[in-house]
Amino acid sequence: MGKIKGAVVVNTERCKGCELCIVACPSKVLALSKQVNAKGYNFAYMANEDACVGCSACGYVCPDACISVYKVKVE
């Protein structure tokens, strides 16, 4: 049976670190970076890359449209 693997890319300059994506992620993939962007926000990043299934929940809830989601079926 194929396994679904996903990945997200955060536009770190648009991200305001609201954490809604972190709450929305069912696989606990995301966390806030210790680094900050130009506006001083801690931005979201994939802290647990292996767990991502590309469900896009983070993308849907993101108020700043800064998340792109990628998904592949691994045979």
Binding site: K5, G6, A7, V9, N11, E13, R14, K16, G17, C18, E19, L20, Y41, M46, E49, G54, S56, G59, Y60, P63, D64, A65, C66, I67, S68, V69, Y70, K71, V72
Partner: peptide, 28 residues
């Protein structure tokens, strides 16, 4: 992760109708 992040695997991203100007709204 690098192998997954390819244009053909993109399933969700910002609509082109929403431009690149960062929105002034509060976080969240």
């Amino acid at each position: 992760t690098k192998d997954i992040i390819k244009p053909e695997n993109l399933v969700y991203t910002k609509s082109r109708i929403l431009n690149d100007t960062p929105m002034h709204y509060c976080p969240g």
